[in-house]
Computed example of a mutant assay.
Amino acid sequence: MPFDVLKPKVNTILANDKEPVKQRLYEVCELLQTSLGYYDWVGFYFANHEQKTLHLEAFAGEPTDHIVIPFGKGICGQVAESNANFVVADVKAQNNYIACNMYVKAEIVVPLFKSGKNIGQIDIDSHTEDPFSVEDERFLEWINQQVAEIL
């Protein structure tokens, strides 16, 4: 499904202030995971800056043991420190990768900023090799901007 078709759906989900924020985040994860064939796992992690850890708040896909990730560890932990998008075409080529399951071949993590501070991130795992494009990055940046407005 093209990103421009998904944007109004994301906006509708996020605008539903009758639902708690965590539920809306879960629904966005579900929408992305079920609408984009190469988005096999979608999750939002949020930072605890005092403890220097990321905490999984909402996700769609296979359950993961990685509900708390230290800053610097894995792709997500590196993004918590770098404040920059990280696109991994081949997770086997990364020496600081935390394996979620044996089927994951690629990952993209995009930081989520609120008032200029990196407060979390959206994380996508794919079972497809090198599936992510610049368009994926721009779309995920857009999603994070929309999410920041409801936080």
Rank of each mutant, 00 (worst) to 15 (best):
P2R: 10
V5A: 14
V5I: 13
K9R: 13
N11D: 12
I13V: 08
L14H: 09
K18I: 04
E19Q: 12
P20Q: 12
K22H: 10
Q23L: 13
R24S: 00
R24A: 06
R24V: 05
Y26W: 13
V28P: 07
E30S: 10
E30Y: 11
L36A: 05
L36K: 01
Y38D: 07
D40A: 08
V42K: 02
G43P: 00
Y45T: 08
F46R: 12
A47V: 03
N48L: 02
N48C: 02
Q51A: 11
K52A: 08
T53D: 05
T53G: 04
L54S: 01
L54K: 06
A58V: 05
F59D: 03
F59C: 05
A60V: 04
G61Q: 00
E62S: 04
E62D: 01
P63R: 00
P63V: 03
I67E: 11
I69H: 07
I69D: 02
I75A: 07
Q78V: 09
Q78C: 09
V79F: 01
A80V: 01
S82W: 00
S82H: 03
A84N: 11
V88S: 01
A89Y: 06
A89Q: 11
D90R: 15
D90K: 15
K92A: 13
A93Q: 13
A93G: 15
Q94L: 12
N95K: 14
Y97H: 15
Y97L: 13
I98N: 10
C100L: 10
C100W: 07
N101A: 06
Y103G: 12
A106R: 03
E107T: 10
I108L: 05
P111H: 00
F113H: 00
F113W: 01
S115R: 09
G116I: 00
I119S: 03
Q121I: 05
I124Y: 02
H127R: 12
H127Y: 13
T128N: 14
T128G: 13
T128V: 15
E129D: 14
E129T: 14
P131F: 09
E135A: 15
D136Y: 03
E141G: 14
E141S: 15
I143N: 06
Q145N: 15
Q145D: 14
Q145E: 14
Q146G: 14
L151Y: 08
